[in-house]
């Protein structure tokens, strides 16, 4: 016998994401899902970004999803903001932060006190792109050392994101990156994608990134 159905396999995952979304709305939280390959500079970016937001009296919190231990959480501790480690596998079994992990992490945060919530996803350009967490915006960090072809190799990630931060721009003089080819490849995948070149090391471009965040938050 045949049973004809239509069932989105990620229905359960999306339902949890919608619950997260509801909480963000209830508490006026702007949530940003930050994704990249391992080592592109997500944690460093947060270390530099959060003080700039604190200067503007915006309270931040971070859900840290990066695998292997709580190293990234430790790096964020000096900022004096709430950081919750998402409950991922200690030996690195997870490939993405799931909406249920965000839901679990939200229980440890005083939502009323948060204006901007960053979710640092697991370093991986494939899996995290697939899953909606309830966030307002998706941001991909692509460092200059990763090669011009990455957008074309991981189309879903660059299709899904609203903003691409081109990181480690301070390294440009030492590399032979064809930046116009990189921009062209980004445009091929997503003509609506905004692109901001930054360096967390020198601080270049960070004010544009902050402006972007503040503008998107108002939308």
């Amino acid at each position: 016998m045949e049973i004809n159905v239509v069932r989105d396999v990620l229905e359960e995952s999306n339902a949890r994401a919608q619950e997260n979304r509801k909480l963000f709305d209830q508490h006026g939280i702007f949530a940003v899902n930050i994704m990249s390959s391992p080592g592109s500079g997500k944690t460093t970016l947060l270390q530099k970004t959060i003080p700039l937001l604190q200067e503007r009296r915006l309270s931040c919190a971070v859900i840290e999803g990066d695998i292997t231990s709580t190293l990234d959480s430790e790096r964020l501790k000096p900022l004096g903001i709430p950081v919750v480690q998402a409950n991922t596998e200690p030996f690195g079994g997870d490939c993405h932060v799931g909406s249920h992990m965000v839901q679990g992490a939200l229980k440890y945060l005083d939502l009323e006190k948060i204006s901007i919530l960053f979710i640092e996803n697991i370093g991986n350009l494939v899996c995290p792109a697939e899953f909606y967490l309830g966030e307002d915006r998706k941001v991909v960090v692509l460092s200059l050392t990763e090669g011009e072809d990455k957008p074309v190799k991981y189309p879903l990630m660059f299709r899904e994101c609203h903003l691409c931060l081109l990181s480690k721009m301070d390294l440009a003089p030492h590399l032979e990156v064809d930046q116009s080819l990189l921009n062209e490849n980004l445009r091929k995948i997503n003509g609506q994608l905004e692109i901001i070149p930054i360096s967390s090391k020198t601080g270049d471009g960070l004010s544009l990134w902050i402006d972007w965040l503040l503008k998107q938050r108002k939308k």
């Binding site: 016998m1 045949e2 049973i3 004809n4 159905v5 239509v6 069932r7 989105d8 396999v9 990620l10």
Partner: peptide, 8 residues
């Protein structure tokens, strides 16, 4: 990704 038919 969706399931559209199940055979039993």
């Amino acid at each position: 990704i969706s399931i559209y038919r199940i055979e039993a």
